[in-house]
Simulated scan of single mutants.
Amino acid sequence: MGNNQCPAQDAAHLAAVARGICPFPSYNPSPHFGHMLSINSSHHLQEHYTAVQRSLTPKQLEDFTQSLRTTFGREGKVTLGGVGVVALSLAVLFDTVARQVRGEVVSDSGPIPGVFVKEPSGYYPPQVNTMSKYLRLVPHIANNPTRMREETERCLNQLIADEESLDQLGENHTLPIREDVTQINRLMGDFVAVSLMLHLFRLKNASVDEWDGLSSNQRPFHIVNFNCDTEAADKVFLAEVEYFDSYTKRAFEKCKPKSDPESWLRYIAELELADVMSIPFLAIGFSPTEQRLNQRENFDLKAHALGKWAQSTD
């Protein structure tokens, strides 16, 4: 499926044109997944930490820093905080605390806002709640190797159970969702599961030879349930391409298949979805190298703090 000659930015641009004709969901999860679970996670985390701090007023920055100080202590060190799921949890924490110090109401349960892809009806697969619960917990146990190992194993087992429950719903034709959106969130579950296994291997100081491996087959995915007459929408889309600027026309020429698809809107949506779903696999893959398993970067919150790392009176 898709067009290997179609750059991701061109697919996204054409999808934006198509959405203006027949709305369908955005398929983009938080960039934190690709950044914080990549080989360059520590660099991305430090950049995000700095960016969040710079977005705050002096008073907000003081409250932000004190909140982190309360969680991590005066040293501000986070074990393995620069890599993998711990880096991901810290990125989520920074965003959450920043919203709180700005006076926003932030829920401490349910799907973490802005991280996963929301299905139009509001449905999330169970993996989203499992991942959200784990990511919220990690900052409070990151410096406790025993708890980290226990909770990581528990989360990994729960993701497997969540996947089995969804498979059963699918077999019984009782899955109450759009396949396209839910498949992305399920893919995020796969992505995090691999990262959880990597984290466990790091905690155990295991070698790459001990890696059991996972299936490298990506999930099948389909665009379904367009809420419009796709035949009529296709005609409008082709007319819009002709009407729009030269960039749109060039993008269309790069991305169109050798023969006309059954539905242009479906084809364009699938192009964008294919790009989104390939990002995690490009970032981490299913065959970790010795370099990745040997990543052992702690994260120093105090050293990278832009505000004063306030001392408590204890």
Results as ranks from 00 to 15, higher is better:
M36N: 02
D300P: 04
L88V: 02
E297C: 03
P176C: 09
T70E: 13
F94R: 00
D260R: 12
T152R: 02
F116A: 07
D190S: 10
V97W: 02
A193N: 07
Q5W: 03
A283R: 11
V85W: 00
Q46Y: 02
I223Q: 11
R219D: 09
Q127E: 15
A142S: 14
S42D: 13
A239S: 15
K235V: 10
M131V: 13
E62H: 10
N205F: 00
P31H: 09
V208D: 02
I141E: 04
N144D: 15
F116W: 10
P125C: 12
V101M: 02
L265E: 05
N294F: 03
N28R: 15
W264C: 05
Y247S: 14
A15R: 05
A303Y: 11
R266D: 14
R19S: 07
L14I: 04
F252E: 04
S259M: 10
P25D: 08
I160Q: 12
F64W: 10
G81S: 00
L175R: 10
D180E: 15
Q295N: 08
V78S: 00
K77W: 06
E171R: 14
A251H: 07
R136F: 05
Y267I: 08
S195H: 04
V86A: 01
C6S: 02
E179W: 13
S165H: 08
A239T: 13
R54F: 04
G81R: 00
S216F: 04
F72I: 04
V208W: 00
E75D: 15
N129D: 15
G110K: 02
Q53P: 09
Q295F: 03
T313H: 15
I39P: 00
L203I: 04
E62I: 01
R136D: 07
G170F: 09
D234Q: 08
F221K: 06
A269R: 08
